[in-house]
Design a protein around this nucleic acid. Structure first.
Lengths: 120, 120
DNA sequence: CCGCCGTTCTGCTAGGAGCAGAACGACCGC
DNA sequence: GCGGTCGTTCTGCTCCTAGCAGAACGGCGG
């Protein structure tokens, strides 16, 4: 760690970076402030800020707490992150990235199909 | 966190548990041993064992290393995990029930569902 | 000018990541 | 029975960082 040259921008994003991006997007879609979500999740505001920017590695309980505070479950979160990761692969990676996909991406469409896979 | 709200044995699985399950399934589908993957990922074998059982919280770099050693990228991994999480929602999650798992973990079902993302 | 909001410093502590080494129980073949 | 492989788990160890408090800072809007 502590490599001197860290502008080596990992070819594909790390887990914590993709997670943070999606969490921030979800929060902003809800029109909520950092302090609101942090308070509801029971964590400090600075820490939530660092999570959203991909600078800290949140534990599973933290992830569950933040996701719960945002009203999203783990499966939806993962699907959303996977989508962002795929977008970043072939699309704009640079800092100036609006577009943020579609306006309101709440309803996860392909849910039904997954649920129908197996009930056994 | 120290919140008192975890009286409920994790209504939905934690991130590290779902991740470990998927990693193990992927490895077994490849017919590889712990030592093979651990060696290729550059981590110790006991630690990989604990990751697969959801007992340790692997860093993003660890996840990338293991996923790389398994020849799977982050997006596919996340999709697979999301599928597993959804499956577990309706069935028995406790350790007493094993029916849901495949006999030897040979055929992994939800491969075809990869095409279901792209929305987010 | 003054609040509001997010970010980023400086600390600080407790916990756990991550490894080495070894022992253990299953399992399989001889 | 005995010896091999494979995974798990125990002990022990170091060192990093999760996670918080407190405060200060740079936008942005009025």
């Amino acid at each position: 760690m502590a490599e001197i040259l860290d502008f080596k921008r990992t070819p594909e994003p790390l887990w914590r970076e993709a997670l943070g991006r999606k969490l921030r997007e979800t929060r902003e879609d809800l029109g909520e402030r950092l302090v609101d979500v942090a308070d509801r999740a029971g964590i400090s505001v600075q820490y939530l800020s660092e999570i959203e920017r991909g600078r800290k590695e949140p534990s599973s309980e933290m992830i569950a707490a933040v996701a719960g505070a945002l009203g999203i479950d783990l499966a939806d979160l993962l699907i959303g992150i996977a989508g962002q990761v795929r977008n970043l692969r072939g699309g704009v990676v640079g800092g100036t990235q609006f577009r943020t996909s579609r306006p309101v991406g709440r309803p996860s469409g392909p849910v039904a199909m997954v649920g129908a896979l197996m009930a056994a």
